[in-house]
Computed example of a mutant assay.
Amino acid sequence: MTTGAPTPTYPARPRRSRLRTFLPLGIAAWLVLEIWLLTVVAGAASGFTVFLVLLAGFLLGSVVIKRAGRRAFQNLNEALQRGGAPSRSNGGGNGLTMLGGLLLMIPGLISDAVGLLLLIPPVQKGLSNYAERTVERKLREAAPGTLGDAFQQARMHRPDGKVVPGEVVRDEPEPGDMPQDPRPPLTR
């Protein structure tokens, strides 16, 4: 009986996250739903009406993004002048307003509805508070301590998931020492 080379054992591949599994499927379903809804509206009204709705959404989204960008730049300028951090005077800040404007600019009726929903201040405030609580909870679960500890923990992990504690010690020459050149000097 002959035996071949032993089969190498590889570590098990890490499980694919749910987000990476279902996000492409969700985007595809959203695109199909948007196209179907546009064809239904075009059949009920006309193609020109759908074109006007999409054009109005694009123009409104560009105006919203422009105003939110100006407001963000103005807040940053005021904060730099007084030497502090930018304030969050409007509920969710300018990020959610810009996201709402971007969703308005994307062709489709569902994205327009979600974009308009994000422009409502109570929705912005609630979504902002929810996101802030979620990020804080995830940071607490990840590694107890400060944010710097979390970054230190991330640096110590190898791609295969094993933790490698330790330090890097470099042998650096003293300031007065001349480095030795391994090549012999050139002669004539």
Results as ranks from 00 to 15, higher is better:
M1A: 12
T2V: 04
G4A: 14
P8M: 10
T9P: 03
T9V: 14
Y10H: 11
A12T: 13
P14I: 09
S17W: 09
S17I: 08
F22P: 01
L23W: 08
P24M: 08
L25D: 06
A29F: 14
L31T: 03
L31H: 02
E34H: 02
E34G: 03
T39V: 11
V40C: 04
V41G: 11
F48R: 15
T49E: 12
V50W: 00
A56F: 02
F58V: 02
G61H: 04
V64P: 02
V64S: 03
I65H: 03
I65W: 06
A68D: 13
A68K: 02
G69M: 04
R70L: 12
F73T: 11
N75R: 03
N77P: 01
L80E: 15
L80Q: 10
G84M: 03
A85L: 14
P86D: 11
S87Q: 12
N90G: 04
N90I: 02
G92Y: 00
G93T: 04
G93N: 04
N94I: 00
N94G: 02
L96W: 02
T97N: 07
T97Y: 04
L99P: 10
G100A: 10
G100F: 03
L102A: 14
L103W: 00
L104C: 00
I106P: 01
L109P: 00
I110P: 05
D112K: 00
L116Q: 02
I120V: 14
P121K: 06
P122H: 09
P122F: 08
P122E: 08
Q124S: 05
K125D: 07
K125A: 09
N129P: 05
V135P: 00
E136W: 08
L139K: 11
A142R: 10
P144D: 14
G145M: 09
T146W: 09
G148V: 07
G148D: 08
D149F: 06
D149E: 15
H157R: 10
G161R: 08
V163E: 13
P165V: 09
G166Y: 06
V169W: 08
V169T: 10
V169A: 07
R170T: 14
D171P: 05
E174V: 06
P175A: 08
D177A: 15
M178R: 15
M178W: 11
P179H: 08
D181L: 09
D181F: 10
D181T: 12
P182A: 07
L186H: 08
T187F: 02
T187M: 03
